[in-house]
Write a protein that binds this DNA or RNA. Structure first.
Lengths: 204, 204
DNA sequence: CGCGAAGTAGCCCGAATGGGCCATTGTCCC
DNA sequence: GGGACAATGGCCCATTCGGGCTACTTCGCG
């Protein structure tokens, strides 16, 4: 099954896969919710799942499918998402992760390996995945503060925005810097963006 | 002509376009340099160009083609690049810009409009493009400093790294904040990332 | 019931930052 | 030659930030 909101990608993948006698595309979905429904209906051996989709993200869709069908084999097919997204979907039970610019041969190998249950993560990704799992989570409040840091607000402004004292904000910031293992708020902001902890601020 | 480093996308686009009797794919290229050569050889009416490619970026390829063939009609097909990239390629002479998740119909319309020379930028993009052109460029030195700001370095560290006094760095930072119209270095960092002025810092 | 985590808030203080303003040295272009 | 501008560096000063510390309340969980 193919899950991707880009029609072009679905057509392309179908074109590639249908040259292989042992592979058949039994279903397509252009969104996460549709993917969950289509999986239940068609029970594909392997699912190729995009991460970034409008209605329900690939992470949620993967989790939803795996919740109902624990032996579902889902390969994430991504262009260039953040580490955070990739790791979250692996956590959600995806079998592995491929870049969309992989050549035909590795793609087919990965699909067959996923079907056989022998798919292996690339070692560098696996290592960072382990590190990511070891990292303490930010609390909800801390994520709020981090979000405002990324927006470039000062501690005082953050305090006003959240209705707390500046000292409180400073404490949150200290904890955030500690958890992210960075030295200052600018590093916290870039790290947060890179890891996808918060999304890009909208332009003025 | 199709220019994209993703095989999947080329196959997909070809599949979509070949359903149309008035459209023919005469060439494909998987990189910028190959695109320039292929353009010279095939002279396609319209070129669909990806921005992010390994060897030569879409911006440079577009500029190179337009330099030799000023009436080349090039449509940029992008997934989610930064504004900076899009604006730079428009500046380089691209006729317009499409997201890869556009449906079949608008895509075909855009191709035909580009061929006829009547393609119009979406108004919101056009407006921001105008604003972008009005913005002063950062000098090379300022971009260096900005890059280090994004990496989370302090003024003193930046001075050491560049071999200048901290005071000089402070002056550069002041100019950068002024040109980017932001209040502090954290905003400068996030703005720079969003606009693609510098790329993401690699993780430790 | 008690313990810990999260959120709140205060204190102190050194360092970093941002904003004025000015000066000198190049270099490039008219 | 003169003008514009980038790059360099200096000074002063108010504000902000980061770090260390303590402390209280409120929760949920065992």
């Amino acid at each position: 099954m193919l899950v991707d909101d880009h029609l072009v990608v679905r057509v392309g993948l179908r074109g590639l896969l249908e040259t292989q006698p042992d592979l058949t595309v039994v279903a397509e979905a252009s969104g996460g919710a549709a993917a969950v429904a289509a999986f239940a209906e068609h029970r594909p051996d392997v699912t190729l799942m995009d991460l970034r989709m409008p209605d329900m993200g690939g992470v949620e869709a993967t989790a939803a499918i795996r919740a109902k069908f624990p032996d579902a084999r889902i390969l994430v097919l991504t262009t260039f998402e953040t580490e955070e997204d990739i790791f979250r979907v692996l956590e959600a039970g995806a079998a592995g992760c491929l870049l969309k610019n992989t050549e035909t041969k590795p793609l087919l190998e990965a699909i067959r390996a996923a079907h056989a249950g022998t798919y292996q993560l690339p070692p560098d990704i696996a290592g960072r995945f382990a590190k990511w799992r070891a990292m303490p989570e930010l609390s909800a409040r801390e994520r709020e503060v981090l979000e405002l840091i990324v927006r470039g607000r000062s501690n005082k402004e953050i305090g006003t925005a959240l209705g707390v004292a500046e000292n409180t904000v400073k404490n949150h910031v200290k904890v955030i810097l500690d958890k992210l293992r960075v030295q200052d708020r600018t590093q916290a902001a870039t790290t947060a963006l890179q890891r996808g902890l918060v999304s890009m601020p909208r332009r003025a």
